[in-house]
Nucleic acid binder design. Structure first.
Length: 714
RNA sequence: GCGCGGUUAGCUCAGUUGGUAGAGCAACCCGUUUACACCGGGAAGGUCAGGGGUUCGAGUCCCUUACCGCGCACCA
């Protein structure tokens, strides 16, 4: 056995990822083994991971680097273990997220979407995502991802849209989707409604105004919404107000003149807070809306969709609420209606998670998903332990959310997304699902109808991703690979995506879409700070792989990083693993050089210490296989690093030098070197696929497989 | 307000069912020997956030306090 010609020269230089990685990836891709249908042997048991579709609105960031690494480790491990392994890649149009990115681009160019033809805008964004997609796919390849490109999906693919429509229709018929005229969260900058998850609570210090409202003093932080307030609410048990009765009319002087107010008694009022009395603005406050619903009160819009005051505000009509407040207060003061102002009022304000604009609740007619029935089924499955959560505490977080779930507004007033296949009656606001486009008048009142111009919340479609990508219901892939094995994604989208996939997946297919949920933490910068463009501390994973090699990046991102905790990404750490790749390279050189003219027997005879080392390695294999099955990659990677360097290189190789030189127990030493190298290359492969595959290609032996399909030693 | 994490060496973090505290990086000393200076050998470094409890024994289990991070919430 000899080192094949030409390879010896290469081994004499340090390991060079740059000249290796692209070539090796091509070798893998051309082998066809990324596709489970092409894998050799009789593989009965499937192993499936659906890749979280990557947002096609930018390029790969550090978080993606972690995703690709962890999922590739799982997939390569299972492939080597003989599973029929599918890792299905995808790209996400990412609705609102992408539109926000594109709007920023427009802004820079001095344009705005509000002056564009929606079709034109859609086409521009589509082109934008197509360009990004191409780039992203090449970046995923650079990470070494062994996913099946032949099954790649995009969230706007025709059959995806079709499947989403089917789901929408089915839910409508089952009464799980309804058109509701309800209070929703509205961002006046982005001009769209949101679900509760797109809202960020922000703590602020504002002024708190105590105003004279007839015989009462009411307190508010938003005087600009108070123009139409004609109901004054207090707790039925509040002794201070026991002389006032429910429904009692009171004439009083208000901002723009005399009004007649009605007393309402409601237990929701907190007697301890403020003065224990408040007026309500049902159109622009969720709690007030509920009170109004409960008592069947009038609701009146005060603020329009741009955040400007409507004619009800009288002289202030047309002014933006932000600007109007001081002059409203001034007027109130002149009228003697301001009792006092507390300037250090700390409270929580709901804001748009993208732009920080204060959310203005509005009453609008939208599509909602009735969540309770869906959540109950999901809860049952989760509580039965049918889904394995890693880390486990995410289970509690999920069930808490499911226990307190609210109906989901899935209408978005943006163009970039899947349009909602429905007709809306302009007279009675009735909504009708219409996939075939054959409804011409309102089915309820016979009135005129229009096409719903809204698009779906992007999570409504991606919530169906696992079964759609596999071709539910008839495709063989669905029958073979569903339910999938692992859903690996970020803990930050546990409600947005994971919980909804469980609910929608179970609703449509009758099965939970995945058996294990593996949630990684945030990737932070070297100082453990959140990466952000404004801070300028964003680390591009591709720069690190360029500098130190993909293998080094992968090791650096895995070793010692317990699941779910955030990860500080430091170039120093990555550099350390570049050295590791080189160490492996040189150790391989030594082994190959010293076993050139040696043929390893089937059952090598070891001397005492070598036999002990051989046994130790076998024990290590057992240990790490168990840990791989427990998803403790952070431990396995560290152990392998340590064993390779400080046992194999420092002890076994050093020891072998004496034996081989003095030709004393040389055969034992050579056999041990050889078998150790082979075993270690195999188990290191899922972590550092490039350098191990490259060395493997230089190993002697005829009809050799690619390392990626070699059998995992256990 | 409620909930969930975290606090271990200078830094970043491991520590499986309780049994003499571990790694990487950094710093320190020495060293060119069949691979590798992207290296080898050696030494140093910790009241495991504070307090209390259970136990023969606690970094690990229980209670409590503080601080950091995150999530959820209709207190006007």
């Amino acid at each position: 056995m000899k080192i094949s010609n030409g390879m010896e020269d290469k081994l004499l230089k340090p390991y060079d990822p740059k000249t290796t990685e692209e070539r090796i990836y091509k070798l893998w891709e051309e082998s066809g083994f990324f596709n489970p249908d092409n894998l050799p042997g009789d593989r009965k048991n499937p192993f499936t991971i659906i890749m979280p579709p990557v947002n096609a609105n930018g390029s790969l960031h550090a978080g993606h680097g972690l995703v690709m690494t962890i999922e590739d480790i799982m997939v390569r491990y299972k492939r080597m273990q003989g599973f029929k392994t599918l890792w299905l890649p995808g790209l996400d149009h990412a609705g609102f997220e992408t539109q926000v990115v594109y709007e920023k681009k427009l802004e820079k160019e001095g344009r705005t979407r509000f002056e564009m033809d929606p079709k034109e805008l859609y086409k521009e964004i589509l082109d934008f995502t197509l360009v990004n997609s191409k780039n992203i796919k090449s970046q995923i390849r650079k990470m070494g991802a062994s996913c099946d490109w032949s099954r790649e999906k995009f969230t706007l693919d025709e059959n995806v849209v079709k499947a989403v429509y089917q789901t929408f229709k089915r839910m409508y018929e089952d009464g799980l989707v309804y058109r509701g005229n309800r209070i929703i969260s509205w961002c006046s900058k982005h001009q769209t409604s949101f679900s509760d998850l797109e809202i960020t609570d922000e703590e602020r210090t504002d002024s708190f105004y105590y105003l004279k409202y007839g015989p009462f003093t009411i307190a508010t932080s938003r005087p600009e919404t108070k123009f139409g307030d004609k109901y004054v609410v207090m707790h039925p048990d509040d002794k201070r107000y026991q002389n006032y009765t429910d429904g009692q009319k009171i004439k009083l002087e208000w901002i723009n003149g005399p009004i007649e107010a009605t007393v309402i008694k409601d237990k929701m009022i907190d007697m301890e807070f403020g003065t224990g009395v408040m007026t309500i603005t049902p159109w622009h406050d969720t709690a007030d809306f509920e009170i109004a619903e409960r008592h069947k009160l009038d609701k009146e819009q005060i603020i329009d969709e741009n955040g400007k005051l409507l004619p009800i505000a009288g002289e202030f009509a047309g002014q933006h609420i932000k600007k109007a407040r001081p002059s409203i207060i001034e007027k109130l003061q002149k009228k003697g209606l301001v009792v006092k102002i507390d300037e250090n009022y700390k409270h929580v304000v709901r804001t748009c998670y993208k732009c920080g604009t204060v959310i203005e609740p509005q009453i609008k007619s939208q599509w909602f998903v009735k969540m309770k029935p869906l959540a109950e089924k999901a809860l049952e499955k989760i509580n039965n332990g049918e889904i394995n959560y890693i880390p486990e505490h995410y289970k509690k977080i999920t069930t808490y959310w499911l226990d307190n779930i609210m109906d989901w507004n899935i209408s978005r007033q943006i163009v970039w997304g899947i349009s909602i296949p429905a007709k809306i009656c302009i007279e009675c606001k009735h909504g009708m699902v219409d996939l075939e486009n054959n409804i011409s008048k309102c089915t309820k009142c016979g009135g005129r109808i229009i096409q719903d111009s809204d698009t779906f919340d992007t999570w409504f479609s991606s919530g169906q991703w696992p079964f759609i990508t596999l071709g539910y219901p008839d495709n063989n892939d669905f029958k073979t690979f569903y339910p999938t094995d692992v859903m690996e994604t970020g803990g930050d989208i546990i409600f947005f995506w994971v919980a909804r996939m469980i609910m929608l997946g179970f609703y449509i297919t009758g099965e939970i879409p995945f058996k294990t949920v593996y949630l990684h933490g945030m990737v932070l910068d070297a100082k453990s700070q959140k990466m952000s463009k404004s801070k300028g501390n964003v680390i591009d994973p591709l720069i690190l792989t360029e500098q130190f090699g993909t293998d080094a990046f992968r090791m650096g991102v895995v070793v010692g990083n317990t699941v779910g905790t955030s990860l500080a990404l430091s170039p120093d750490k990555i550099r350390g693993y570049k050295n590791f790749a080189n160490k492996i390279w040189n150790a391989a050189r030594f082994v190959l050089d010293n076993t050139k003219d040696y043929t390893i027997p089937e059952n090598p005879k070891y001397d005492e210490e070598d036999a002990k080392s051989n046994k130790e390695l076998k024990e290590l294999m057992k240990e790490i296989t168990k840990e791989m099955d427990e998803y403790k990659f952070y431990l396995v990677a560290e152990k392998l690093y340590h064993y390779f360097w400080h046992t194999f290189a420092d002890i076994i190789i050093e020891r072998s030098k004496k034996k081989i030189l003095k030709n004393k127990n040389a055969d034992s030493a050579k056999a041990l070197l050889f078998t150790h190298l082979i075993t270690l290359l195999k188990v290191l492969h899922p972590f550092i696929p490039f350098v191990t595959e490259e060395i493997w290609s230089m190993m002697p032996g005829k009809n050799k497989n690619l390392l990626m399909i070699e059998k995992w030693p256990s």
